[in-house]
Design a protein around this nucleic acid. Structure first.
Lengths: 238, 238
DNA sequence: GTCTATATGTTGATAGAC
DNA sequence: GTCTATCAACATATAGAC
């Protein structure tokens, strides 16, 4: 069997010290996403991972460090995917409204794929992203910002270019609200179809299109309203 | 001193057995909103309320029942305010787009006032609503649905009327996404100005207008896109 | 590296005096 | 109704054998 390509191997979890670390990280992601930080005990984690509490502490030092490690492992590929999608969207260089929609899609879609079960069909699974967004243990708040801030800035800049000349502050709010839409969607409150119910994936596609349309229209409306208030000329809508 | 009017007394917390119960409920709301259910101990609650763990258990029986009591006390006036605002919005009976915007405002604004600190200026306070939405202890899930489901249904019906004839399923999704926008806004990720920074309240007003515009435009776009897909005729935008 | 055993603290809930 | 004192169960983290 030939050695796997670097592209494939890069997707694999870090298995440099056996797979105990990897199994622990998987278990942590699952349990933290489902129950939150404080409701998840080291016993539950290590039991699910098939190892012991001391092994976990040997590898990660503490419960909070364990969560932090799981966080960066999960968000790194997510953010890479978002940035890649953004680069593609910008390369196509569509006009104003279409351009914004493309950027929003790049922002939201990887989150949906990684966060909700829409990729593998686990309809009601909870997302680590949602958890960490509203339930940030004190220690990871910094990490969280550190990880997401640059990506958000990139998208902010892209939107700034696509939307013409808009109030940066309003744009920041608009992007945050879009994130709210996306997070809400993977927070377990939207019912995604299972692969059995939706073999062609068309229902799923439609939901995603609807969500992107929702967020993009929201952004446009918010920016319109803002600039209307500042330039004292009417917005483009009603 | 004359007896207070019933209207005034109705606003007060239930003080039939002294105000220990009320103080406990206040403390619970604050701590649960800030830290979540599992991270809040009975000791922390009772200490903040200036009483003892046993007193709390005497009045409420358990930690979960205490949370449940706090939940209904908080959400009842919130939902009443939303329904009242909806009735007013419907009485004015505006046309399609304007009507939708009015309904969305009725849906969102009371949530903002009650949930975020925008009423009293506590800019970064966390909301119990947000907490319970993503971190529902198993026991309160039922209560939560029981409390919010009727209100959501009312708004759903109102939107159905205002939007003409749209796919009920799409409308349900659209309303849920609007809720995501609102909850995100009070989840501590939007920076609200303090009364000192914004004495006239105009900045705050503008943010609220922007949010309502965002959500309303999102709903319209989502419904347009849905009906466009079904009737095979283009939507109203682009 | 992984385990068993244990240290040390905190949790939710209760018993019983007042 | 409210307190102090106490319970058993659970938490995280560590020590030390292998």
């Amino acid at each position: 069997m030939p050695p796997r390509s670097p592209a494939l191997r890069a997707v694999e979890p870090d298995a440099s010290t056996g797979d105990t670390k990897a199994r622990l990280l998987d278990a942590v992601v699952r349990l933290f996403a489902e129950r939150g930080f404080h409701a998840t005990s080291m016993r539950a984690i290590t039991q699910l991972a098939g190892t012991s509490v001391s092994a976990a502490n040997y590898h990660f030092g503490s419960k909070e460090e364990l969560l932090r490690a799981a966080l960066v492992r999960r968000t790194k590929p997510l953010n890479d995917a978002r940035l890649e999608a953004l680069a593609e969207a910008e390369a196509e260089a569509k006009g104003g409204t279409e351009g914004i929609r493309a950027i929003v899609r790049a922002y939201i879609l990887p989150l949906l794929v990684a966060g909700s079960g829409i990729a593998e069909g686990a309809g009601s699974r909870r997302s680590l992203a949602v958890r960490l967004y509203v339930d940030p243990p004190e220690i990871v708040r910094g990490t969280q910002q550190e990880i997401f801030a640059p990506v958000n800035k990139r998208f902010n800049d892209a939107l700034q270019r696509a939307a013409g000349d808009v109030d940066p502050k309003a744009l920041d709010v608009a992007l945050k609200l879009s994130l709210g839409v996306a997070l809400h969607s993977i927070g377990g409150h939207l019912v995604w179809p299972t692969p059995e119910e939706d073999p062609s994936g068309s229902v799923k596609e439609k939901m995603i299109d609807g969500m992107v349309a929702f967020a993009a229209a929201g952004i446009i409306a918010l920016l319109d309203l803002e600039s209307a208030g500042e330039t004292a000329s009417g917005g483009s809508q009603k």
